[in-house]
Computed example of a mutant assay.
Amino acid sequence: MAYNEFLSDRISQFFKEKGVNFYEKKMFGGMCFMVNDKMCVGVVKDEVMARINPDIYEEALTKKGCSEMNFTGRPMKGYVFLNEDATDLDEDLHKWLQIALDFNPLAKSSKK
């Protein structure tokens, strides 16, 4: 299944309106949004994948529509999936995107 292009467009529009320097990269069978050459958020199928501060990870998992990201059989702390309950309204999506953007300067770059 392809990724949700409408959701991807909403993320792109938010970043443009905020003046964020980003680029899009196809990864994980979806679309990732790279900020400072680091994965910030992405769209996989109909969900947003967000990289957030590990210090707020446990609290984030208690929020409606937020779940642990699990590609390999074990959760990745600091990465969450956000389903439609967390992204349907622009206000909710924008809140999560801002959380990911706020963490981006602190995030470590992956090894190339």
Rank of each mutant, 00 (worst) to 15 (best):
K45W: 04
F81P: 00
L89I: 03
N36R: 10
Q13F: 09
K111A: 06
K112T: 01
M27R: 08
S109L: 06
F15H: 03
K18V: 05
G73Q: 01
F103G: 05
M27T: 12
D88A: 13
E24K: 14
N36S: 09
Y23H: 15
A2M: 08
P105W: 02
K112L: 09
K108F: 01
I99A: 13
D46A: 08
E17D: 14
G30H: 05
M49E: 05
L106A: 11
S12C: 07
I99H: 03
D55Q: 13
D88L: 13
H94I: 00
V43S: 01
K95W: 11
L61M: 11
A86G: 08
A107T: 02
F103T: 09
G65L: 11
K26Q: 12
E5R: 14
K95R: 14
S67E: 10
K111L: 10
P54V: 08
K45I: 03
R51C: 04
Y3L: 08
S12A: 15
D37Q: 13
A107R: 15
C40L: 11
F71H: 08
C32T: 14
S12Y: 07
T87K: 12
D92E: 14
T72G: 02
D46C: 01
M69L: 12
M1A: 01
E17Q: 11
Y79L: 10
V41Q: 02
F103A: 10
I99E: 07
I52S: 00
M34G: 07
F33N: 10
G30A: 06
S67T: 15
F15Y: 15
N83G: 07
N36V: 00
V48S: 03
E91G: 03
N21M: 05
I52A: 06
T72C: 05
K95N: 05
N53R: 07
H94T: 01
E24C: 11
T87L: 13
L101H: 10
D55H: 09
A107M: 13
P75D: 00
A86L: 01
